[in-house]
């Protein structure tokens, strides 16, 4: 397979572009996605290639962006809607939660809603409390939605293509601070990563660390550091939160007996708690040889000051220390 190094952002663009070339029912709309190329430049060049019929600027109207996507999807298109910041998905909640997620079930299986809602989450850009949240857990709580959080450029491409081809509403959470991160991306236009399939990013035996999105590179850095000190860390990236690759997680915990969970979102009510509970309920329980540890964002709104902002999410040092503590039975 041919690979090319590109940024996370370009991988997202490539996935959309390939799918739009392949299927004319795929269209993109959102605020400033057209000529401007999107607030983060993700759709740069697409307006030029596909024109205003398929790459559409919308008014600043998140509710109707999401609802319009659902209505278009249920009538035969495969729309990709962009919400400029994940924080603004709150305005689109009725369309996502009450409409898109429910239609198939409440109509007795007679409808399908093949839409993707792309939105960038996460802090680290100095955008403060209303432009920096990681709200993925909100969507995970709604049956009918799928939730994807890619952590690498290749995953971004493969997962977005799968999301566009999926016949369900998919919330595709991109990571602002990863947009410029580079990685090798398969150029095959049939490179599709099935939703619900995680990936073991590092094989290890002493502890399982589950992470996704922005925290994944930090976890990998900590794991690689500790390998030199003889600590073998298995890093599991579920990649999609709904559906979740439970089998991969359970198998890994059974192997290592220890589990650390790392994400950026606030700890309370976060998805890490869900994974933790799932593991506790599973056959992996009897293999647990240490308390399950969560490293997550502090339960505060995201502050502006750069030092404060950096302090609310797990650092590489904190991740490394937590791994050492858990592996040596100190926690």
């Amino acid at each position: 397979m041919e690979y090319k190094e590109m940024t996370y952002k370009d991988a997202v663009n490539l996935a959309m572009t390939e799918e739009m070339r392949k299927d004319e029912n795929v269209i993109l709309f959102g605020e400033d996605v057209g000529l401007y190329g999107g607030a983060f430049g993700v759709s740069v060049g697409m307006f030029e290639e596909f024109g205003p019929e398929r790459v559409k600027d919308t008014p600043i109207s998140e509710a109707v962006i999401a609802g319009c996507a659902a209505g278009a999807a249920v009538t035969g298109l495969r729309p990709i809607a962009e919400i400029m910041f994940m924080d603004f998905t709150t305005i689109a909640m009725d369309a996502l939660v009450n409409q898109a997620a429910k239609m198939r079930y409440m109509f007795g299986g007679k409808a399908q809603v093949p839409m993707v809602l792309r939105t960038p989450g996460g802090s680290g850009t100095g955008a403060a409390a209303q432009h920096s949240q990681s709200l993925e857990a909100w969507f995970c709580h709604v049956p009918g939605l799928k939730v994807v959080v890619p952590g690498t450029p290749a995953d971004a491409k493969g997962l977005l293509k799968a999301a566009i081809r999926d016949n369900n509403p998919v919330v595709f959470v991109e990571q602002k601070t990863l947009y410029k991160e580079k990685g090798e991306v398969p150029m095959d236009d049939e490179f599709v990563i099935p939703l619900g399939k995680g990936e073991i990013k590092r094989e290890g035996s002493d502890v399982t660390v589950i992470s996704y999105g922005r925290m994944l590179p930090r976890v990998l850095e900590a794991a690689d550091d500790l390998k030199k000190e003889g600590i073998s860390v298995e890093v599991v990236d579920p990649r999609t939160l709904v559906p979740l690759d439970k089998e991969m997680i359970i198998d890994s915990v059974k192997k290592t007996g220890k589990l650390i969970l790392v994400n950026e979102a606030c700890k309370t009510g976060g998805f890490l708690g869900e994974i933790s509970a799932m593991v506790s309920e599973s056959e992996a329980f009897d293999y647990l040889d240490a308390p399950i540890v969560r490293l997550a964002g502090l339960d505060v709104p995201v502050p502006y000051n750069p030092e404060l902002e950096a302090a609310i999410v797990p650092s590489v040092d904190q991740i490394r220390q937590a791994i050492v503590d858990v592996v040596t039975n100190k926690r």
Binding site: G257, F285, D286, Y287, L288, D289, P291, N329, R331
Partner: peptide, 27 residues
């Protein structure tokens, strides 16, 4: 005791209260 320790002790027929723990607070 951790779940894994409990499972192993059960398998071996050991009474947990007799086993010295090395974790925090004697876990």
């Amino acid at each position: 005791a951790t779940p894994a320790a409990r499972a192993l002790a059960k398998e071996k027929g050991f009474a947990l209260e007799n086993i010295p723990g090395t974790g925090p607070l004697g876990r």
